[in-house]
Structures are given as structure tokens and as C-alpha cells.
Nucleic acid binder design. Structure first.
Lengths: 237, 237
DNA sequence: ACACCTTCTTGAACGCGTTCAAGTGATGTG
DNA sequence: CACATCACTTGAACGCGTTCAAGAAGGTGT
């Protein structure tokens, strides 16, 4: 048995008990790893190099992280936190839906920008459905919920008036869109990922317009159809 | 350099010359590999096992295929061909947009169904932007074009009347949607991937309706906006 | 002080994908 | 027929992620 898995059955963070020394070593390994990932790239950074640079044995890294991929979870969580903070800054000043959404999306790209080349490899591992790193996996469910919560703030705090049913679903839809933007960004080879910025700037007014249009009488049936489809697909069996 | 790619047709660039014996060995290795992938899964099949089963040395496999991942390209091409054939069957009988699209999508899932568990791992490697297997890579551009061509047939052969600008873009958009369906399918853990079928059955009428609605005067500006966005994002710089 | 238990650390060893210098054998050339 | 050329084949070797039996370090109860 590998023993150290990251998620306990309980929602609480009562993982395997860990003392101060252990926590320190864990952080040391994680920070060293992320630094080397940034400096040399993911594939080029070996577990041996991480261990050596951190001054520990290879096996020790595996005591705290189930695999090399699991080190990415640290990166994942860290950026999530920073994005949340940057988003709150935006949401505190902007009140209309479009600028709120635009600000949050650009902030998300800002946060990830330094890791663009490395994020590609990261995405590869996250794309595997069975991987705990997948954004759809149950193991990363807390992180996903936190990300969706940002978009709930975007919607709920805005002055936009919209169908209550749509309002309920919109945060998750926006998060899905955000995943799409990230996917686009990962593949974006234009300088400074300009195309991704253009995609955001173009898509946000479009979404804003569609949300407004959703209250038109002609579009009512179409909207119901969309919501019904979401409902149908969400069912697990 | 790498030289050996799959293109069966003659117009390919000057590949490495290959004699009859070589072609035979190549096929033997590929078929053995795909069989073992199906039987044991991708990760569990080692290059040593493939070589042993095929009765050649490990190094020989690397003479014909740049990497283990490149063996997947064979699988990829094969299913693409089968899907195309199945799609033509559908397109020969159905004349309206919705059933044409629905038939083609279901046919695509049918083709891939036997490989659902293995396709997940396959997807992982395909998701890496730098991978030649990525559906967006230039190396798989012929395969992508072939796939888009199917959706061009879906649109062009249908009786649906739609904006000429939209008509031009729709095939590529539908292909993008198909990639989304595939992504959903890979993650779909419901029995027989029922949810994916429901997604198709629900999304097709929706798309059909939206295509019709796109001719409404109120939606005209929104449509132009969508098309402008596509134009903006497509530019490479 | 001692024994005991849990947390933490070690590094050799395993099997993997991949590489490469060295070969084998068929074909074309004089 | 010799010989050079080029397609093809080999398997040992390399570096990688990962595992695991063994033990060290530190806390707790007696």
C-alpha cells in the first residue's frame, strides 16, 4: 500500500497526522519542485534532482507525494488561491456583469502566465480522467467548488437581471467556459498569448449579450431547452 | 529525421524509402501493439512485450515508430476511416440537418465504444499541445481536415437554410463540438456511456434550433458578433 | 530511566521507455 | 564475382519514476 493518499473520507482536513518537522520537509520539497519546474520545465526536472536540491533522499519525496504528478497539485492550489485574491480585488470595484467577468478571466490568465510552457505538460497529466488531478475528478472537487464559487460571486454580485433558473446554472457554465479558455490558452502559441486575451475580450460581451437576450420571449423555449439538457446530462446513471 | 509517418497515400513528402520486408515488419509491430493495447490497456503494455510478441528486438520497434505514443496514431487513423464510412451511410439516407448531425455523432461514439477504457489513456497523451497526436497539432492536420470534412458534408448536404457566413463556419464549429463530445465521453463513467448519448440527443435539437434562430432579425447582431470573434481569434499573431 | 509506538528518512533496486554502436543481409554497380 | 551501399535488425546500456525493507528520530506512558 502506498499509504499516504491526499483525501480522507471526511471533508475535514484531518489527513494523516503530521508534525511540525514533517510539514516543514513537505513544504521544502514542494517549493523546490515548483522552482525547478519553473526553471527547467516539468519533464526535464527529475525526482532525483528535486531530492538532491532539497537535500533529502528520493524516497522522502514519495513519503509526502504519491507521485511526481501529485506535486502539481501544489501548483494548482497555490494559483487557485492567488486567482481568488485577484478576483476579489476586481469584484470589489466592478458592479456590472461584463467587466466583472472580464476582470476575473484576465486575472486568471495573469496568474498562470509565468507557467505557460510548464502548464502544457501539467495539462497533459490533468487530462487523464482517472488522474486525481483532473478538474472533473472527485479528488479535486474542493478546488473545483472553490473555482465555481468565484463565478458565483461574479454573477450574484452583479447588477444584471436574469432568469432565476439561468442564474442558478450560470456560475457552473462560466466555470466550464473558463476551463475552455484555459484549454485554449494552453494551446495558444501567439506572443504573450495574445489570442487568449482577444478571445476573452470578444467572448465576454457576447456572453453578456446572450444573458440579456435570454429574457426575450422568442428565446424563452430555447433557454428552457438548454436548462433541460443540463439537467438531463447531469444525472449520474 | 523522424521520417516515418503514417500517410498511406503517395502524395506524401519524400518519406524514407521502404522495401517490402520493412513494410511487413512495420505492420506486424503495429498490429501486435494495437492488439495488446486492446487486451491489456495502454500503460500495461510494454514496448518489450510488443517486441517479444512480434518476435523482434525492442530497438526494431523504434526503427519504425518514434515512440510508444506514435503507435497510437495507427489506432487514430483507423477509427477515423471507419467513422467516415459509417457517416456516409447516414448521410446517404438523411436529408435534414438534425438527423444528419445526430447520426454522425452517434456513429462516432459507436466506433470508439470498444476502446472506451483505453481511449482515456490515449486522450491523456493526445492532450499535450506539443504532442504530434494532439488534434490541434500540425502533424495531425490531415486527420483533422478529414474530420471537419465529415461535418461539412453534414451541413452542405442538408436542406437547412442558413446564413452563408454561418454556413462557412459551421463545419469547424461542429467539429469543435464533436471534440467536446469526445471529451465528455472520455470522462463518462455511466453504464454504456449513456450520458454521452443523452448529451448528443439533447444537444442536436438545440443546435438545430439555434441555427434556425440565427436567421431572426433580433439575433442578427449577436450572430455577427460570434462570427467576428471567430475571425479575431483565428488570426495567428 | 526504559520500552514502545508513530512519524519520518534513507538509498539500493526494479521495470519502464528510449538510444545507439555494432552488426546482418539484400541490392545495385564495376 | 567482389564490393560498396543502404535498409534493416540487434540487445546492452542509460536515465527515468517508483517501491520498499530497513532504520533513525522524536514523542509518550510508566
Amino acid at each position: 500500500m502506498t499509504g499516504v493518499t491526499t483525501a480522507a473520507a471526511e471533508p475535514g482536513p484531518d489527513e494523516k497526522p503530521r508534525r511540525a518537522r514533517g510539514e516543514q520537509t513537505r513544504q521544502l520539497i514542494l517549493e523546490t519542485a515548483l522552482r525547478l519546474f519553473r526553471e527547467r520545465g516539468y519533464a526535464e526536472t527529475t525526482m532525483r534532482a528535486i531530492a538532491k536540491e532539497a537535500g533529502v533522499a528520493v524516497g522522502n519525496a514519495y513519503y509526502y507525494f504519491d507521485s511526481k504528478e501529485h506535486l502539481i497539485q501544489g501548483f494548482y492550489d497555490r494559483n487557485q488561491t492567488i486567482h481568488r485574491a485577484a478576483a476579489e480585488q476586481v469584484l470589489a470595484t466592478e458592479k456590472e456583469l461584463a467587466p466583472r467577468l472580464r476582470g476575473v478571466l484576465h486575472a486568471g490568465i495573469d496568474v498562470n502566465e509565468p507557467y505557460h510552457s510548464f502548464a502544457a505538460t501539467f495539462f497533459k497529466t490533468a487530462a487523464e480522467p482517472s488522474s486525481p488531478l483532473s478538474p472533473f475528478s472527485s479528488e479535486s472537487s474542493p478546488a473545483r467548488e472553490a473555482a465555481i464559487a468565484i463565478f458565483r460571486d461574479v454573477v450574484d454580485g452583479s447588477t444584471a437581471k436574469l432568469d432565476p433558473e439561468l442564474r442558478k446554472e450560470l456560475p457552473e457554465l462560466l466555470w466550464l467556459g473558463w476551463m475552455g479558455v484555459i484549454l485554449f490558452w494552453v494551446y495558444d502559441k501567439s506572443p504573450d498569448q495574445r489570442r487568449t486575451r482577444r478571445l476573452i475580450d470578444g467572448a465576454v460581451p457576447l456572453i453578456d449579450r446572450m444573458v440579456s437576450l435570454s429574457r426575450l420571449r422568442v428565446l424563452r423555449p430555447a433557454l428552457r431547452q438548454v436548462l433541460a439538457l443540463i439537467e438531463t446530462v447531469r444525472k449520474d446513471d
